[in-house]
């Protein structure tokens, strides 16, 4: 009897904890793409997974620094992405040059192949003290298993951008976290990015301007 009562209290407590965890942690997958840990391409489960941009839309997005100027299409993600979520869909895109676009304000990284967005992920970036540099870079080196000697931290799938160590690498992406200047992306996304990127791949890091959202609400 006593055990039953204890069990009942335990179930209630566990239920409360599970609910609290769900609220705070936010379930990760967006559109199911997160569930594909392998490197094979997986298309989005959408009727229209890709949105092609008109000339006007392209100019608007480029003006707000939300996209590179010559973007042709983006992934059609109708809902907000969460910390740790990412999407990769290159199913209809031919082989081409990879470019990486990072927006610190929106905490997003987008990978483009031939002016078409093939992947995007929520990122971590540097604190105010150790800020992530803004500008245009090229991948200086690729290191699959790297460990930061300065911070004694693992940096899997490192794409090095600067000589002082700023890189794009796999991280445990959660809210309330920041890096010492690197761009952290979810590990599986980092693996895909690493397999696509080459030494010399262009990387642009921007801090976009917040658009006037009143026109949408």
């Amino acid at each position: 009897m006593l055990m039953l009562r204890l069990l009942s209290f335990g179930v209630m407590g566990a239920g409360g904890l599970a609910a609290a965890f769900t609220i705070t942690q936010l379930p990760i997958p967006s559109l199911g793409a997160k569930a594909a840990p392998d490197l094979s391409a997986r298309s989005l489960d959408l009727a229209k997974p890709r949105m092609f941009l008109s000339e006007e839309a392209r100019q608007d997005a480029a003006k707000a620094e939300l996209l590179p100027p010559d973007t042709r299409s983006v992934l059609n993600l109708p809902s907000r992405m969460r910390y740790g979520s990412w999407v990769w869909d290159d199913s209809d895109i031919a082989q081409g040059t990879l470019t990486i676009y990072v927006d610190l304000r929106r905490q997003l990284l987008s990978a483009f192949r031939g002016n078409h967005e093939i992947g995007t992920a929520v990122i971590l970036y540097g604190t105010d003290t150790f800020s992530t540099p803004v500008g245009r870079f090229r991948v200086m080196a690729k290191m699959k298993t790297h460990r930061s000697s300065t911070y004694d931290a693992a940096m899997p799938y490192t794409l090095r951008l600067t000589s002082d160590g700023v890189s794009i690498h796999g991280s445990d992406v959660h809210g309330s976290r920041a890096t010492h200047g690197c761009v952290g992306v979810p590990l599986d996304f980092a693996r895909r990015l690493f397999s696509e990127a080459k030494v010399g791949t262009k990387v642009e890091i921007v801090r976009s301007k917040a658009p006037d959202l009143s026109q949408f609400g």
Binding site: N76, Y151, S176
Partner: peptide, 29 residues
């Protein structure tokens, strides 16, 4: 409408990071 690319790109973001939420991931040792 899905045609609005600004709304689409802005809406996928988890939001701008606030200063209070920043915790250093790696301690310098």
């Amino acid at each position: 409408p899905i045609g609005n690319v600004i709304a689409l790109l802005e809406g996928r973001s988890p939001g701008e990071r606030t200063g209070a939420s920043v915790i250093k991931l790696k301690k310098k040792i």
